[in-house]
Design a protein around this nucleic acid. Structure first.
Lengths: 326, 326
DNA sequence: TTGTATGCGTTATCAA
DNA sequence: TTGATAACGCATACAA
């Protein structure tokens, strides 16, 4: 692989001239020299070594996005939003999957491989993030609330969303209600359920303990949890599902047993994914601004990175989308 | 952030002693000194700067996984397989999403950020990969066949799988058949359809041109494509779908129109995703070893990386899983 | 307008 | 057993 030295030799100039010709603005080198250097670089297929450059400049023009799992339509939208903003800022986003016993995050960050991070991985501990965040290394979290001068919090209004589902159930006259939650450790899930519970209390709904079940955010998980629930023989009049995918699985199980939606049981999901419109019956769900969430998180990170702005805390609103499943 | 110098100063030794104490094997430094250095490092929270280390050692202990899109259950399994092997080799995997006009791949690789790459992104051009692959930078591709000494090919037997679906249709007495393909640019898709076509010819099935439709590998896409297809008023007796997700969407559309599966039309999918068992009726599909695919691809990359072994070409078998949709 | 020299934080060679 | 020092490839302050 050609280095800057090789280019310098071929173009018959010093390495500093090569560097300036290739990166620098106008003024520093004559147009003639610049051309000669560019020609030489092209000829050798020269590509600056990013590692060496980073060592010198102390930045990599890379941000790290740490996700607990890449799956699901919501993650996809968030990623798109992040990438869009990275491109505008001449950065690239690299992604890492953080499972429970992985230290990828620490490794990548401590090694200075990225200039900042966006974290959406429940299983990463708060302490880890607090230790890593600094003036030179801003972090944006999307799955928790952290009070730290170098950490920004971008969230959606989960609690209000859950509350609104309960309110809507009340409006429709559904008194006996239940829910299927996601992973108990998940921040979003906790807040959704918290809001729903608040509504249940406020509107005098009847939420038996046995009507609180849990899935794992997957379609298959929702299917199984609902199957078991049906077998118990005691169903509420309406159920709030902590995400759409579980709701889809649950609907499949219900239909298999000949239980009518919404006449026997009403279902509401969360995320308003594309399929909501197309399942039978179409699924009432909570719409969240996923793409925008990614955009905002990335912008927030670049604000910290560029202008050294202060950290931010934002909570984005959600909207209840009413369809025939209720 | 503490550097090796700070540690050296605190421990009252030279930086080379620090380096050896922390990385090196036995013999080089006395146990006593090593302890003192470790103590100092701990106290300062010292973490070696990976960038500087990489510049020197010419390796990052990182591999890049370049995906066209992270979504779908198959991708998830492949990623898990890759990560498992990375862990065993003391490497980390970082992921990048390659959309059509992104240059993330080139950037990450040319900057020497990763020691090797696994590519599963149809939209990356062959030429790009051929240019980048070298003795020092092995690549494993999973979405195409490339003859290059530094590129390994790990594939599944798409063609045979498609052929087997046609054969199965014949066995069941379905003569009028159709298919819904995925993105035409996709290698897997092309081969699946190719194999199916071969079977159609060989078994004298009747595949009208109007029975060849296309989706985009998504559930929503499959739903819409099928809706339109139904509206055309002329359906075959059986259809092969290039992946399960489209099949699920298509099944939803069919059921909505009161078209019975498999009595009016039989459906076969591809990937044998978890939901196949749970949709109504359960979906006949092609099982592929996704996790193993990731394991094998990663192992293959490490073989090239470590022992400088030759490139490999492997095609993994698939299996037709029969369920009630046919 | 150009070149020389320094240093980024490591690892590794060599001499002590 | 240890320390001084060169080198990795680049950017840049400063000298010419």
């Amino acid at each position: 692989m050609a280095t800057i030295k090789d280019v310098a030799k071929l173009a018959n100039v010093s390495i500093s001239t090569v560097s300036c010709s290739l990166n620098g603005g106008a003024g520093r080198v004559s147009e003639e020299t610049r051309e000669r250097v560019k020609e030489a670089a092209m000829q050798l297929g020269y590509q600056p070594n990013g590692i060496a450059r980073s060592l010198k400049t102390k930045k990599t023009n890379l941000i790290g996005v740490f996700l607990g799992c890449f799956d699901g339509p919501v993650y996809g939208e968030i990623r798109k939003g992040i990438q869009q903003i990275c491109k505008l800022n001449n950065y690239e986003a690299i992604f890492a999957e953080c499972d429970y016993n992985s230290n990828t995050l620490a490794k990548v960050i401590q090694q200075k491989l990225v200039d900042g991070a966006i974290v959406l991985a429940t299983n990463v501990e708060d302490k880890t993030l607090e230790n890593i965040a600094s003036k030179d290394f801003p972090i944006v979290v999307m799955d928790r609330e952290l009070k730290n001068p170098y950490i920004s919090n971008i969230l959606i209004d989960n609690k209000n969303a859950g509350y609104n589902v309960a309110k809507y159930f009340k409006e429709l006259g559904y008194i006996d209600v239940g829910y299927m939650e996601g992973p108990k450790i998940d921040y979003d899930n906790k807040r959704r359920i918290e809001g729903f519970n608040k509504g249940v209390k406020e509107f005098n709904l009847n939420l038996k303990n046995k009507w609180k079940i849990s899935g794992d955010y997957t379609e298959v998980g929702g299917y199984h949890a609902m199957q078991e629930f049906i077998a118990s023989g005691d169903l509420p009049r309406a159920m709030f599902m902590a995400n759409d995918e579980m709701a889809f699985g649950a609907m499949t199980a219900l239909k298999e047993c000949g239980i009518d939606i919404p006449n026997d049981i009403a279902i509401a999901g969360f995320d308003n994914t594309d399929m909501c419109e197309f399942v039978t019956p179409p699924l009432t769900s909570i719409s969240r601004p996923s793409y925008e969430l990614g955009v905002i998180a990335a912008n927030c990170l670049f604000d910290s990175l560029n202008k050294k702005k202060k950290n931010k805390s934002l909570t984005l609103p959600t909207e209840l989308i009413k369809r025939e499943s209720c």
